[in-house]
């Protein structure tokens, strides 16, 4: 709130009304419903539901399928974050450093931001498909029989590659803006003290970028968890079978294909808790970020 402000009593309510009513109807109501139905067992034919306490949670956490998806989600999130962050850091550092063509590279490296995840997934199919994929042809020469949608690890590889490709632009934009905000005088001082570009990067530039990197790590984890749905759905050609899937994909699958409302809701609530933990973590990082800069 501002020091100077208006004191009209009803007008702010009027201004808040659209936002509050939309989130009440389309956010709080569904979220509460998810929590509620996670404690119930829905009759698959729609004849009411029975209260089952924590059974949905216990069954979810004990199921092999869920554990498999959880492990995949963790590995997938780690790989996607690691590769997209390191690739874009390298590219941003170079784009900041070159004397000519910096802005051209910037455009070339960031436009993929606008490509929708499912389109990225479709392009991924074109590259990794068994019968006509370019990558499949290529690795066949090295004796790698790449089977998208059949072999678990091959499919996982394709998912990681496409997800990284889609996420590089966002990281690149933030890293570049972080690099450009480092005062020139610091770089010049470092240049006098240290001859090696490599060690200059790790001792001066990287620590100054650390707050950006921490913040991006959270963004990347959120991306890998939630925004990769389209990529995964495309790469498995909407037929998940025994293919790797993330927890969000499983929420969708159990809820809409499996008609397991209770189980799917329990998974939703578990994801909510996960996001809550991430957010608390993020707020603490933001506090630290202020100290840095």
């Amino acid at each position: 709130m501002k020091r100077a402000n208006f004191s009209n009593p009803w007008m702010p309510l009027l201004f808040l009304l659209p936002q509050l009513s939309i989130i009440a109807i389309f956010f709080y109501y569904p979220a509460v419903q998810a929590m509620q139905s996670s404690f119930y067992l829905e009759d698959p034919f729609g004849f009411g539901s029975t209260f089952v306490g924590l059974r949905n949670y216990v069954e979810t956490l004990l199921s092999d399928q869920y554990r498999k998806a959880a492990i995949f989600t963790v590995v997938f999130t780690f790989l996607v974050s690691f590769f997209s962050l390191s690739i874009s850091l390298l590219l941003a550092y170079k784009a900041d450093k070159v004397l000519r063509g910096g802005s051209t590279y910037k455009t070339l490296l960031m436009w993929v931001y606008a490509v929708a995840p499912p389109v990225a997934g479709l392009l991924g199919v074109m590259y990794f498909d068994q019968s006509f994929g370019l990558f499949t042809y290529f690795v066949a020469d090295f004796g790698w029989d790449f089977k998208l949608g059949v072999d678990y690890y091959d499919t996982a590889t394709a998912m990681v590659v496409v997800a990284v490709w889609k996420q590089v632009p966002v990281n690149f934009i933030f890293f570049l803006s972080g690099l450009q905000s480092i005062p020139k005088s610091i770089n010049e001082a470092a240049l006098i003290d240290n001859n090696s570009g490599f060690s200059r990067f790790w001792t001066i530039t990287f620590p100054l970028l650390a707050p950006t990197a921490f913040f991006l790590l959270i963004i990347n984890i959120t991306y890998a968890l939630f925004d990769t749905f389209g990529i995964i759905d495309m790469l498995v050609k909407a037929v998940p079978a025994n293919n790797p899937m993330t927890l969000v994909y499983k929420v969708y699958l159990d809820g809409f294909r499996g008609n397991d409302l209770g189980g799917s809701s329990a998974q939703s609530v578990l994801l909510m808790i996960l996001v809550l933990i991430l957010t608390v973590f993020q707020f603490r990082l933001i506090e630290r970020r202020i100290h840095y800069t």
């Binding site: 709130m1 808040l16 936002q19 509050l20 989130i23 109807i25 389309f26 956010f27 109501y29 569904p30 979220a31 419903q33 998810a34 139905s37 959120t222 939630f226 749905f229 969000v248 929420v251 969708y252 809820g255 809409f256 409302l261 799917s264 809701s265 939703s268 994801l271 909510m272 996001v275 809550l276 957010t279």
Partner: peptide, 26 residues
């Protein structure tokens, strides 16, 4: 104001994907 702030900003926590099934039902 603080209450309105928190009511609104809690929504930052949960992407639509997480509450997709109940949202669909609603």
């Amino acid at each position: 104001a603080t209450l309105a702030f928190w009511i609104i900003f809690t929504t930052l926590l949960l992407p639509l994907e997480v509450r997709i099934l109940p949202s669909y039902e609603v």
